[in-house]
Amino acid sequence: MADAIFIAAVSLAALSLLLAGIRLAKGPWAIDRTVALDAMTIMASSLIVAFALLSGRRIYVDVALVYGLVGFAGVVALARYLEGGL
């Protein structure tokens, strides 16, 4: 029961990652893409934790932590670049 609900949750999260990816591809401006990338980073790091649960390997939770950190730094760097202040 719990497994079925969790699989549904992971599928929905993956679907929303895909939908946000449409915005990333469509743009139309760099800002819109970066906004989509910001949301996708959060979804992806949550999905990595879900993958850690499904595969039973704890090390992937650390991967998600580091990915969250790096993604945040990347989005802020992109935003500063677009602002012209990097």
């Binding site: 029961m1 719990a2 497994d3 949750a9 929905l12 929303s16 895909l18 949301a39 879900a50």
Partner: peptide
């Protein structure tokens, strides 16, 4: 606890879906 946790995850992923729809 597993069922409650899975349901919470499901609600969370619904909010993910909401944010993706909002982005679009």
């Amino acid at each position: 606890a597993a069922i409650i946790g899975a349901s919470l995850s499901l609600v969370g992923s619904l909010f993910f879906l909401l944010s993706a729809i909002g982005l679009l």
